[in-house]
Design a protein around this nucleic acid. Structure first.
Ligand code: MN
Ligand code: MN
Ligand code: ZN
Ligand code: ZN
Lengths: 140, 140
DNA sequence: TTTTGTTTGCAACATTATTTCATTTGACAT
DNA sequence: ATGTCAAATGAAATAATGTTGCAAACAAAA
């Protein structure tokens, strides 16, 4: 499903910034930060428009935001846009050394029962450590 | 265990900003943001010193940082400083309505097995929803 | 093609975080 | 108690991140 189709499906106008952001995320194997998206957008990048587009895409459920730590925010396409039907119900891995972030789409978030009175809406799980590239046990 | 004792235990110098930050967190039932700590510090608050003190206290394992979302960061004393011996191995709850954050000290983080090659160091879990005060099911 | 409401992009602003460096201070030894 | 010195503070400057208001541009539908 390409950017135009995704936007249409969600009844959003097809605009250049939106299309470019979706393309950037779609062609990347990993979630991207604002600056990484910026690099892929070239001329079409405008900071404010980026923030507003991201907001719209998040609300529509087209992308999800991953907050790896207090200074690292990245974005990824939701897999439901690709035919499979996961939600943002998977675990994320953040490499403390190279700052890479990985969607572990196959590792589902386990459920917790909250104390009574609390209403659960969503659950974010970020595992931190060393990725395969930074693990000294693995020779490259 | 008071602030002076905690600092001594970790071989850190007893300074006014550190003591005041620890006291602020110790006397609060909930994790505090920078501004909430600031309010409790009065004259003794300086932004740069706050950031550096927090960094030191984090490294020493005296406090933990909770990143509730991309714009909400809070801090809490580690319970091991209070006699019990939990680590920062518990789930956090974030109320999307009133932005309150709660350490669910009794709800331990479940373990995940990562794909081979990844090294796990820590795991952050934030559950979002409505707290007991914001849950319309509960009459106040 | 004309209309209409949405989206964009600029400017200005607010908040959060980091680096450099001179001054102060806590801890320890005298 | 006093002096010493490394460590910590606080001021200034800078960078990075996020938000709001508004006029012009644009997408989608008539
Ligand atoms: Mn993901
Ligand atoms: Mn906690
Ligand atoms: Zn890595
Ligand atoms: Zn609440």
């Amino acid at each position: 499903m390409n950017a135009a189709e995704i936007l249409k499906t969600h009844q959003l106008k097809k605009t250049s910034p939106r299309v470019t952001i979706i393309n950037a995320l779609q062609t990347s194997q990993f979630p991207l930060s604002e600056n990484e998206v910026k690099d892929k957008m070239g001329e079409l990048y405008d900071r404010i428009t980026f923030y507003r587009s991201v907001h719209t895409l998040l609300e529509a459920g087209i992308i999800h935001r991953i907050v790896a730590d207090n200074t690292t925010v990245k974005y990824a396409l939701n897999h439901c846009n690709e035919g499979h039907h996961h939600e943002a119900d998977h675990v994320h891995f953040f490499c403390e050394q190279c700052k890479a972030l990985v969607c572990l789409n196959d590792i589902k978030i386990q459920s917790y029962s909250l104390p009574s009175g609390f209403v659960k809406k969503e659950c974010d799980v970020v595992i931190k450590g060393l990725c395969t590239s930074c693990n000294p046990q693995i020779e490259q």
